[in-house]
Design a protein around this nucleic acid. Structure first.
Lengths: 186, 186
DNA sequence: CTTTATGGATGTCACCTATCATCTTTAGGG
DNA sequence: CCCTAAAGATGATAGGTGACATCCATAAAG
């Protein structure tokens, strides 16, 4: 049955939110349109009233996933000591909780490889999210602009690589990786 | 038609070699059994004479991919100066050539995310390959055993993360990432 | 010359993206 | 205030592709 425009807006939000989680949990191919719609409490038939293609959904979901994750990063960045904020973010990023729950985590270790094989639209949105993250991290790095940006790239690359590898490893190895890269045990 | 056992062995090798490349290029879901068999010059009908399941092929292909890639790493490690060897390996790893050709590159940035969602068998084989790489890299690091291993994890995480992100980015951004992480332009 | 097992051809079943007729309800003009 | 056209949701379905199974012709092996 038809619903109000406000309700449709909320439906769309639920679809995107479900997609943002399921994509990170199962990968681009592993999260089907029907899965996402079902998770959003709808049937798959109505999907194409909201999005042209699955690709468009992926792009929208990536935006939301980065928004959500960056807001987590930035929340700490307003503390008096920006370097302490980055340190706290690193601990959270390199935690077993982040490894265990990709659905709420950083899109980079969860989806970068998939995105590298996806459409230009998806790549562009993803890349924009990555740049936003680098900017957010670099903001709290020491040195001049170029040094901060460069340090932020190294930091982000290491963190993303560490979480990604930890997700393929057994528990002791995962802990070893996280610790080696500067993470905690939380 | 039936072929000799030696020929079967060669068929199997071709299948694994094709899989090792196609998996890295297209991901686990993107490379179908039919694709792999076709690439190996066979039809998909005979596949299950060689492997129980697709999973078993993935495991075998991961082993070969790591073998091939580690032999590249280790080739340089025999030079008089092991630290120079690691530096050379880093330059190669963080090159645009590596970013552009995942099919011959490191399995980690290409497949870690997929593996994190795969069967325990696949995860175990992949994790074993990762540990072999860390051992190979750590071999040429300074400091005591623990420090070397820890430094190797950081290095590998950063390199894998950098290549993975570079593969989702446009050319200038990719170059920026590689340079920031210590790579060259080759 | 018989046995055997490889690889090819074809089939089955499930699932994925995308579409559509249909029902229902909203939104807006008279 | 009501009536009607537009539009969201539904369930069925089309078309394609995936993993995996089965039958068959044939050549190796004894």
């Amino acid at each position: 049955m038809r619903v109000s425009q406000a309700e449709k807006e909320r439906s769309r939000d639920r679809i995107v939110t479900s997609a943002a989680r399921l994509l990170r949990e199962r990968g681009v191919d592993g999260a089907s349109v029907a899965d996402v719609m079902s998770d959003a409490g709808l049937t798959h038939g109505g999907f194409y009233r909201h999005f042209e293609t699955k690709d468009a959904l992926v792009a929208a979901a990536l935006d939301q996933a980065f928004d959500q994750f960056i807001s987590t990063v930035s929340r700490g960045a307003l503390t008096p000591d920006p370097q302490a904020a980055v340190a706290g973010f690193m601990k959270t990023y390199l935690s077993e909780g982040h490894v265990a729950h990709p659905g709420q985590g950083c899109p980079i270790p969860a989806l970068a490889a998939d995105v590298g094989r996806s459409s230009p639209l998806v790549q562009e949105r993803f890349s924009a999210g990555v740049r936003r993250m680098v900017a957010a991290i670099g903001h709290a790095m020491p040195g001049d602009d170029e040094a901060r940006r460069s340090a932020a790239w190294r930091q982000l690359a290491m963190m993303a690589g560490a979480v990604m590898m930890a997700r393929t490893a057994d528990s002791p190895t995962a802990a070893e990786i996280l610790t080696a890269c500067g993470g905690g045990d939380s």
